[in-house]
Amino acid sequence: MSVAPFPPATGAGRVLGGIRDVFTSPKYGPVLVTFLLLIVVFAVGGSRYRGFVSGPVILNLFVDNAYLIVLAVGMTFVILTGGIDLSVGAVVAMSTMIAASLLQAGWSAGVVIPLILVVTSVLGLLVGLMVQVFKIQSFIATLAAMFLARGLCYVISKDSISITDPFFVALAQTKIPLGDRMSITPSVVIAIALVLVAMVVLHYTRLGRTVYAIGGSEQSGMLMGLPVARTNVLVYVISGFCSGLAGVLFTFYTLSGYSLTAVGTELDAIAAVVIGGTLLTGGYGFVLGSVLGVLVLGTIQTIITFEGTLSSWWTRIFIGVLLLVFIILQKILTARRR
């Protein structure tokens, strides 16, 4: 421990040292690793299949995973505070069921969508209150929410309900052309807009900075006079809202509601966030990292689809291995800093 804050630096040495510092920083290190990983995964895909690294494939990644991006955004808020949300998959399913059943009953899309967002946000609020006021561990509180949401799905209907509402069908079929043979869906636009809003909130508002502060040290945040309690509740509201929105996007994608949909999606969302460089203990991470995480998962899925012979279960195993690698990486990076 020296008091001199700057090591003597000269041109190249300083640049190299700087690169090393960035990679071993718990803040940027994992995100950079994720970015390199994404490039590697793409290179692997590109070297094996013609036309893998092409506009349509990349855009499809976004189209297929728009809802997961939205989920990952909400999960990022929660994990940044050191919590976890196990309910998101069930809440997605519940949202699809609410949408499908109400639309079937003749409600208009203009009412149904806001209603879903309100319901899921309120569910998040309840979870947040359990965590903050009653000091219940986040995984238990969100577990209760998961049971509740899944159970409500079954209460609504155990069968799949298809959606024929013209607004939903229109959104499902709309393609926004982007040049030659390439297009995206409105869901992608919504997901990207959400990512931008989340970035602004996390980096330019007191709410966002308090989220990071809670993840760093709740105690310190409180002593610094930050609104810790309120923020701790709000992250679950945000995650609930994102789960509802993801559910809506999911119905645009599948045009149906089904109770057993999105089982295990919470794990995908958590994995995307962790692979995206957010520390599971909170305090470090970026929304953009989580988007990268989703893209890594999506690319692996795409490769497996392209491969044909490689079966889908490899996705889960790959995700598990990546989780392990990133968790150990996080452990090493944070241990070095202690």
Partner: peptide, 16 residues
């Protein structure tokens, strides 16, 4: 977190 890894990968292994 430690057991989350196997929770995620385990079902893939079972399917394998």
């Amino acid at each position: 977190i430690a057991t989350l890894i196997l929770m995620t990968a385990g079902r893939g292994v079972a399917m394998l």
